[in-house]
Design a protein around this nucleic acid. Structure first.
Length: 796
DNA sequence: CACGCTCTGCCTGCG
DNA sequence: GCAGAGCGTG
């Protein structure tokens, strides 16, 4: 290489570095590295999505321009001079005028695949790509989607090779449960001995590991219980097959099996995908890893991004080993660590680093920030869960009143959804704007599931589960006996249950109900014919009218009004789909309904504080974060503490995730006693709080209004001056066992009547000496506190 | 069969 | 504490 050539290469790289100066050196390294496997260990708030998006944009624009050592023929001194002086130009100009000349085999957009876990992440990547790349680059052709949507897409094209007809149905967890119940019956096993939830978990984990029922049975050997589970798994899989249905785990597993066993399909995708990226790689399971390896097997340009410290889904099959040993699977992989955090203050980071350092199995890394130290972390000890909630309310009110923050700057993140209750009550009482994430999803409502089931049956007559769901919804007087007979005939004849109904007049057993069955089958067949002609929304109306479902709700009067509204909302979802989709089809819509949960109802623009579990907060950030319930026996959860070190490490990672959500300020709250699941617990402060260096904490004591009347054993770990010891968690201690209360015990939520104040609702009950202190919200006069003995409250 | 009562279990949860 | 399931009765 001549001196001129090496100057050319040096200036080329310098120009790229300059054009991408908005990225830090490690981020640039990741963006420019595209011709070998790449592991990006991206700490919390280190700009991982930016890197993922920028890298795809980069390889579409410039290919391997940065590291390519090819020098074009006849590089002149003038050119080199030009490049050198270009370094003084603004980044924008360099990008426009110089970078395109370095392009080295850029990659067409359709040959790029990006896989995520959630629709939200997939959408964010799509949107950011669309904002980064011009339309002419073919940005719309990039495959970006969730593991499940990508597999569904592959199976729609090639699933027939695995025995699935293209109109297959996707079963969700609820469908799964019902099918397992059915399988248990088939196997003549009792649900009490083998709980459905347990089997569901076992089957799901088996599929995560690509184990078929046969594999599982082989593993079971002489273990009776395993053999039983294996038989249920086998029966379950048979039921799915005969309904032409796949569950979520099947989508992945069957795609992997398809790619493994069918060379032509495998090569089709391997030749197509030159670049494969996987987000949140720490949450992948073995099947997903295998899928990733297969899809990227043609070019081996696989980039995985993740943070082993943020792996929090072990309980649903995630295998942290995937990210820990990626470099062993791909010895030529480049490893890039993104350790600069752009989110939090250094106090918050120091705390998070200190906590996570207690874990053993991890890639060593340490987040740092250029940001200020920031405020210390507040540790507040509250009397009980209500005081904890009030502390949150007070703090928010105070900060908002001072003009330090808006409501939307605050998030309350908790370990379990059950904690939301007391906090929600306090917020409602104080009339603070808030929203809660979690709870029943729109698509989980009965009426929506019913409507979808009708559509699914129309799309896939073989779907026995959906058939059974709607056959008597509305009531059609088809009894359990008839349905059993149909199911039996179907199995004997090798037909679907719907086919049996269509020909009900052929079977003696169905003599009495054949009229009803035939008319039902006719209705579905008519609707199926209509589905080929009508627009989706018109079809939906026909289904709701002809089935009598809408009428049923109308007849239901007031209580069903909300359901009718929900159906209308569902219809607007259909309309939206028809408008958005390139080629709207019934199957397409159903697939979207199955794979795309609710559109995020979390409206970030509204000025309201937000409540959610730590799990659902992953990937989000908030200026100020409350972490209530920092107690042993709650966080870490008692199950985790019992099960073993691996579970405990996962809890610690969860804590790490929680801490790193905060940008400016963290409030940790620990309650001395807590009413949870109908028991009052008195647990010491969470060990995770103890792991935070004292210097980072500001211990805030109870505003001394009620000096604790609780003394003795359970208060020890909490004594305000020294809480360094955490003893055994005293789960289940019921400290209110002694019924010190007067005659009529009222409890929060009870409606009561007062002689002067009128009707109201009990908000809280506190022991006060030998008496009880009630806090009551009256409809006319607002909140009043009163002693039970004098209040003379009448329970309504 | 529909309703209401009792019993039970209960962490986190993407698709 | 509460929801959902299962069971028994009118």
């Amino acid at each position: 290489m001549t001196h001129l050539d090496s100057l050319y290469l040096t200036y080329k790289q310098a120009l790229f570095d300059k054009a991408y100066e908005h990225l830090n050196p490690m981020q640039r390294e990741a963006v420019f590295s595209i011709d070998h496997p790449l592991l990006v260990l991206a700490g919390a708030g280190s700009g991982k999505t930016t890197v993922l998006v920028q890298r795809i944009a980069f390889l579409i624009h410039y290919g391997n321009a940065y590291f390519d050592e090819h020098v074009p023929a006849g590089v002149s001194e003038t050119l080199v001079e030009q490049l050198k002086s270009a370094l003084d130009l603004p980044a924008e100009t360099i990008r426009e005028r110089f970078l395109p000349m370095f392009s080295a085999d850029p990659c067409p957009a359709f040959r790029v695949l990006a896989i995520t876990f959630t629709n939200k992440a997939a959408n964010e990547i799509k949107n950011r790509l669309a904002a980064t790349l011009p339309e002419s680059s073919g940005v719309a052709d990039i495959w970006a989607g969730t593991f499940h949507s990508i597999c569904a897409r592959i199976l729609r094209s090639h699933g027939d090779l695995m025995g699935y007809a293209p109109g297959f149905t996707i079963y969700d967890t609820d469908d799964q449960k019902k099918t397992i119940a059915e399988a248990l019956k088939v196997c003549n096993l009792d649900e009490k001995l083998l709980p459905i939830k347990t089997i569901q978990g076992i089957i799901s984990r088996a599929k995560d590991h690509l184990m078929t029922p046969d594999d599982y049975l082989a593993e079971a050997k002489d273990n009776l219980r395993m053999k039983q589970v294996g038989r249920v798994y086998e029966a379950y899989q048979g039921l799915l097959r005969s309904s032409n249905a796949l569950d979520f785990d099947d989508l992945i597993m069957q795609t992997v099996l398809l790619l493994k066993t069918h060379k032509e399909v495998r090569e089709l995708y391997q030749n197509r995908f030159r670049y494969v990226s996987v987000d949140e790689f720490q949450e992948t399971n073995p099947a997903q890893l295998e899928l990733t390896v297969l899809l990227s097997g043609g070019y081996r340009n696989l980039m995985v991004v993740g943070d082993d410290d943020q792996s929090i889904y072990r309980f649903r099959g995630a295998t942290i080993e995937n990210i820990l040993s990626f470099d062993r699977l791909f010895p030529d992989a480049k490893v890039v660590k993104l350790e600069q955090n752009y989110r939090s203050t250094s106090v918050i980071l120091a705390a998070a680093n200190a906590v996570i350092a207690h874990n053993e199995g991890r890639h060593e890394k340490k987040l740092w920030t250029a940001a200020d130290e920031g405020e210390k972390i507040t540790l507040h000890i509250a009397e009980d869960q209500n005081a904890e909630a009030r502390y949150i309310v007070d703090t928010v009110q105070k900060e908002v009143a001072r003009g330090n923050a808006a409501y939307k700057d605050f998030a309350v993140l908790y370990r379990t959804n059950a904690q939301a209750n007391s906090i929600e009550k306090a917020l409602a009482r104080a009339a603070l704007p808030y929203r809660i994430l979690g709870g029943i999803r729109f698509s989980d409502r009965k009426e929506i599931r019913d409507a979808v089931a009708y559509l699914q049956l129309i799309a896939n007559h073989a779907d026995n589960l959906r058939l059974n769901r709607i056959i008597n919804e509305p009531k059609r007087k088809i009894g359990a006996k008839t349905l059993e007979a149909i199911a039996m005939i179907a199995v004997e004849q090798g037909l679907s249950q719907f086919e049996v109904m269509e020909t009900a007049d052929k079977y003696v057993a169905l003599e009495r109900t054949k009229e009803t069955l035939l008319s039902f089958a006719n209705m579905i067949n008519d609707l199926t014919a209509l589905s080929k002609k009508l627009s989706l929304d018109a079809l939906f109306d026909e289904v709701m009218d002809r089935s009598g479902y809408r009428q049923m709700l109308k007849d239901g009067g007031e209580p069903e009004a909300e359901r009718l509204d929900n159906l209308e909302e569902f219809k607007s979802n259909i309309l939206e789909y028809v408008k958005e989709a390139e080629e709207p089809t019934l199957t397409g819509f159903l697939e979207e309904t199955a794979l795309v949960a609710d559109v995020d109802r979390y409206d970030e623009s509204a000025d309201a504080l937000v409540l959610m579990t730590i799990h659902s907060a992953k990937g989000l950030e908030f200026p100020r974060v409350f972490l209530p319930g920092m107690e042993e026996g709650l966080f870490p959860s008692p199950q985790a503490a019992m099960e073993g070190p691996a579970e405990l490490e996962e809890e610690r990672r969860l804590c790490y995730v929680a801490l790193t959500r905060a940008k400016k300020k963290l409030y940790l709250i620990s309650a001395k006693t807590r009413l949870l699941y109908g028991r009052t617990l008195a647990n010491p402060i969470s060990r995770f709080v103890e792991e935070i260096p004292e210097g980072l904490l500001k211990k805030e004591l109870l505003p001394s209004q009620r000096t604790s009347s609780y003394t003795g054993a359970f208060a020890k770990g909490h004594s305000e001056t020294s809480f360094s010891s955490f003893g055994k968690a005293t789960v289940g201690t019921n400290i209110f066992e002694k019924k010190s209360a007067p005659k009529e015990q009222l409890s929060p939520g009870d409606r009561v009547l007062h002689a002067t104040f009128g009707e109201g609702q009990i908000l809280s009950v506190k022991p006060m000496g030998a008496d009880l202190l009630y806090e009551v919200l009256f409809e006319r006069v607002g909140i009043k506190k009163m002693m039970a003995t004098y209040a003379k409250l009448k329970k309504l």
